[in-house]
Amino acid sequence: MNADLLYLIVGVVALLVVGAVVATVVVRRRRALPPAPPAEELERPAVGTATAPSKERGERAPGTTAPPETLPDTQVEPAPAPLDVPEAPESRLTRLRRRLAGQDNALSRGLLALLARDRIDEDTWEEFEDTLITSDLGVGPTTELVEALRTRLKVEGVADPGAARRVLREELLRLVDPTMDRSLATEPGTDANGAHVPAVVLVVGVNGTGKTTTVGKLARVLVAEDKDVLLGAADTFRAAAADQLETWGSRVGVPVVRGAEQADPASVAFDAVRAGQQGEADVVLVDTAGRLHSKTGLMDELGKVKRVIERTAPVGEVLLVLDATTGQNGLTQARIFREVVDVTGIVLTKLDGSAKGGIVVQVQRELGVPVKLIGLGEGVDDLAPFDAEQFVDAVLSEA
């Protein structure tokens, strides 16, 4: 065997040996790999779902929707409750007029009886006069109205019920006096330095008249007129009063300034007006404690509240809340409050439950100040500006 053939055989054998070694290594490597995943795990996820990341990263299983990202320590605040939309003053007046006209009150019955008679004699006039007095019209206004009616019906020869009603309306309207200024002083101003000064309305009255509720309802009236309002809870003797005000304020987005229980009412009132000045509020409504008019010390304290407020801003309006059902007792209260805080207007509440509309005339005569607001119900918007003509028309609507 020659040398070339020998080299060829050796080379072929070497190649075979190397190939066998390589094949063995490849086979061993293939056996070391994990088995291939099933075909379904290799499919792409559907649109709108998340991928299937590992659980070690806190990720979800395939086929679920990804939650929104949030910071670990973030507190998610609930959405604020929607604010109430107070009823417009115009629609309040219309609705309250209908409600007043629907009351079976003594004044309406007396007027109806007068016009229903075929012949008006002395007994009729006496009966009518008694009815007016019992409807809280008062002795003076009653005598004045009866004399005016008797004279006009006789002189003008009025026999037709329709004509008699017109005369009656004119005379009753004259007693209610539509010429009195019933507007509320709720326009802000500026001081000598040009700084903002809110209008301040002080609300006073005895316990049980609905004073705090009236403050809350009045806030709604002003918000409906696009006023920026702030409430001052100066009734610090009754914690529930401040809580009640905060409830009213939260419904229409009105802030409330309150102090600790038993705190100095004058201090709380001062802080409220100062906050209204700094926040450039249009109106600050200050609720005061329901003081008994027989308590001289408490009445003096009410005078102090007014004096302290006026260190910051003038008190443009002092509203006395009276319960229309109290009659003569309400007039006694009114006189004492007028002496202490110079009352500028009356709020008559519970007029729907009283049916004694004559109190409107009498209280105006006694105090020389107008009825500016009336309440006819327990609804949140059952408070409206008093309108003399609408009041008289409502009383006569059944006649």
Rank of each mutant, 00 (worst) to 15 (best):
R258P: 00
V283G: 00
V252L: 07
W248P: 01
M299W: 11
E280V: 06
R291S: 12
T312Y: 12
Q278S: 09
H293L: 05
A289Q: 13
R307F: 12
V308W: 12
E310K: 06
L302V: 14
K306H: 12
V273Y: 03
V252G: 01
H293W: 06
L285E: 11
D287N: 09
S267C: 13
V256D: 01
E317Q: 14
A289Y: 15
K304Q: 12
R274T: 03
P255D: 10
Q262M: 12
D271W: 15
T296Q: 14
A272W: 00
V273T: 00
A272N: 05
V252M: 03
L285C: 15
P255G: 03
A260T: 07
A281S: 08
A281E: 01
S294L: 15
E280I: 06
L292N: 15
E261S: 00
D300S: 14
K295A: 12
P265F: 08
P314G: 06
L320A: 09
L319N: 04
A269E: 05
V254A: 04
G276D: 04
Q244F: 02
L319W: 08
L245Y: 01
L302P: 07
R291T: 15
Q262A: 11
V273S: 01
V273H: 01
A275N: 02
G276K: 01
R258N: 01
Q277M: 07
D271M: 13
G279M: 11
A260C: 03
D264K: 13
D264H: 15
G290S: 13
G276N: 03
D271G: 13
A266I: 13
V318C: 11
V257L: 03
V284F: 12
D271S: 13
I309D: 08
L320Y: 09
E246C: 03
A281H: 06
V268F: 12
K304H: 13
A272Q: 04
Q278A: 11
G259Y: 02
V318D: 13
L302D: 06
E317M: 13
L319R: 05
E261V: 00
Q244D: 08
V268M: 14
V305S: 04
R311S: 12
Q278Y: 08
G253S: 04
F270K: 05
S250Q: 08
A281C: 08
E317R: 06
V252I: 09
T312E: 08
V321A: 14
Q244E: 15
V321Q: 09
L302I: 09
V305N: 05
L302N: 06
R307W: 10
S267R: 05
D287H: 09
D243C: 02
P255M: 02
S294E: 12
P265G: 11
R307I: 12
D287A: 09
V308G: 14
L320G: 07
L322Q: 14
R274Q: 07
E280P: 03
P265R: 05
V308F: 14
R274P: 00
A266T: 07
E310P: 11
R274Y: 10
V252A: 04
G276Q: 00
